[in-house]
Design a protein around this nucleic acid. Structure first.
Lengths: 354, 354
DNA sequence: ATAGATTATGAAATCGATTGTATTCATTAT
DNA sequence: ATAATGAATACAATCGATTTCATAATCTAT
């Protein structure tokens, strides 16, 4: 790899002149410029970004730290890469697997590489979220899906509203006997999803019975699928028809797909007998049979915004600090939901009566 | 961020001494060492990796360049990150989206950052694969899924055998009227898959009729799902029962899932009426209804091997160059395949006769 | 006691860029 | 003709590390 020194030697000038040519300084004679340009082309010279970064204190490097690469995080990463590329930043990825030590190591490593800024989905270690991040992060950060009381800029999903939206939709379809799953309550965003759902029912004078709430233990993709299956057993085993929920809301799509599968196995028709709703709108919800009605999270847009907010912080000279951006859910109706059977009958009777 | 200079000042020694302490040199007095260690702790000093890289000509940075983040590539990335972490390397990711220009830009960028080595899934631009990579890559490389005549080290999947394995399995189940999909023939690995399937049938004196071969145009995940649906239309529209294939092999799992969905829509029972087989064994094949029988690609192992081969090249002082590693497919039998209906009858008659 | 070896340390070069300061040379003004 | 201006370029410092070389201090052996 040729350096500026080589170019300078070949062109018969000093390195500073080469540098000036590269940076488009007007303080360089046209003939000299041409000589340098020729040398650059001849040697196929390209500036070393490490040296630049060291001097300029800017690496044009964005770090993305996630727990793991689930479907939704992969979409997020894909868009982050796209948006960074557009702005001339490269992306380093680290997966902490919900291990706080590892998360710290990744952040540290990134800062030691003079990374410009970080997009971080913090580790959830059991009931505790890493909470002393402030101490060892000294570069711009945008949090994804977590807010930490606004200490950092962040992009979150309106999880409460997502839960509420699911509840409203199922109620509108006439369902009254509802079941739902909940994830580890250690993470605020899952709590929000649940309470949104719960409180919306309450508002309508309804509730979810304890036996219709299935608590999923794990937080990993495969386990989520499994949890869905287990939830079905939990909701259906030894129940009379009247005691069986007519709709199930899952706190995320992977669990919802596990539920669909579990219902299939038992030969239960969807949505005729039981309706299912998820949250997230991951890509496979569309292909599944039946396709899954879900509360969509605008992941791509969130990634785009996260990068935008981060880069603005990085490039601002007046210490701009990004705020809290909350993205709204969107109901995506597909094939896994339908009017409650009893309700349907009621409706047609009404129509016949009219 | 504290530097060695700060530590040196605080400890009352020179930077060279600090550096020696950090690198565990024996040529430093115990008392001095303690003073320096104390200063390091006090200032919470951590070495700047950029400066180190510049000097040492080793960045401990591995680049991973992929077309995009499909399910299978996300798994690959996840394992690459894991394996790199274990060996003390960080990972930069770039997605070229099958655009050769972009691929070149990513490679270039990475080399300008003194990246140590590259794992590359090359761009397939229409019928042409980027073929002058040699010219602008001057660091260790391991190719993924492509071999380029062995110019670079590479990890590939035995795609030919995967196709053959699918064919053998379906024949064993008694299917004789087979259909299949093919992807863009510009990429060798998809050609291999097809010819493996085709030749295996030929070996048994069978063939796939032209009307039972559906050519998928696109290479992207969403389109793959769609292609599967279109393939179903192509195979079934206006066919008499005898003329309808009893088994379909898709050249990848996404297409296969699209096919399952298409068959569902038409009310066709799987596998009773039509069996379906995919290739890759992506995670959703297990959750789908019915779960998909597929020819598994050991992605995690391939990622692990790729990193292993790459790091060995990077760290070898005698110019070691990795060779070609071919990973074997594995038949994963699930619910989407079953004996051919006619064959089943034949078998039971046989049994009854015996 | 002194030469020679050993140990501990600092100064300076280096990696590959950028940039402030100094210098050279040509041009213009007085 | 000479001083002042300005353009073009070179020199040197800097970013934060490592490493070679030189030097000072200590120790060993004769």
């Amino acid at each position: 790899m040729a350096t500026q020194k080589d170019v300078a030697r070949l062109a018969g000038v000093s390195v500073s002149t080469v540098s000036r040519v590269l940076n488009g300084s007007s303080l360089v004679d046209e003939k000299t410029r041409d000589k340098v340009q020729a040398a650059i082309k001849k040697l196929n010279y390209r500036p070393n970004l490490l040296a630049y970064s060291l001097r300029a204190r800017s690496s044009r490097l964005v770090g993305l730290i996630l727990p793991e690469l689930t479907s939704i995080h992969a979409s997020f990463l894909q868009q982050v890469e796209e948006s960074c590329m557009e702005r001339g930043y490269s992306v380093m990825v680290g997966l902490h697997r919900n291990d706080c030590e590892r998360e710290k190591a990744l952040i540290d490593e990134f800062q030691r590489r003079n990374g410009d800024g970080l997009i971080l989905y913090p580790a959830i270690d059991g009931q505790n979220v890493s909470n002393n991040l402030m101490e060892y992060i000294s570069i711009p950060v945008v949090l994804y899906e977590h807010s930490f009381g606004g200490q950092f800029g962040n992009v979150t999903f309106n999880n409460y509203e997502a839960g509420a939206m699911a509840a409203r939709y199922l109620l509108k379809l006439g369902h009254r006997n509802l079941a739902c799953t909940v994830g580890p309550m250690g993470s605020k965003f899952l709590r929000d999803r649940f309470w949104g759902f719960y409180n919306e029912l309450k508002k309508q004078g309804l509730t979810v019975q304890e036996k219709n709430i299935y608590r999923c233990d794990f937080n990993y993709q495969v386990s989520n699928f499994q949890s869905g299956g287990e939830a079905v057993d939990y909701f259906l085993e030894g129940r009379s028809p009247e005691d069986t929920p007519t709709a199930i809301w899952a706190h995320n799509d992977n669990v919802a797909l596990g539920i669909l599968k579990g219902l299939h196995k038992r030969g239960i028709r969807i949505p005729e007998e039981i309706s299912v709703v998820g949250v997230d709108n991951i890509s496979l919800t569309e292909v599944y049979y039946p396709s899954l009605t879900t509360i969509g999270q605008p992941v791509k847009k969130m990634a785009e915004k996260a990068v935008e907010m981060l880069v603005r912080q990085i490039e601002s000279k007046d210490g701009y600090r990004a705020g809290n951006l909350v993205m709204e859910p969107e109901l995506v109706v597909r094939e896994s939901t339908g009017p409650c059977a009893g309700w349907k009958r009621l409706q047609s009777e009404k129509q016949a009566g009219a």
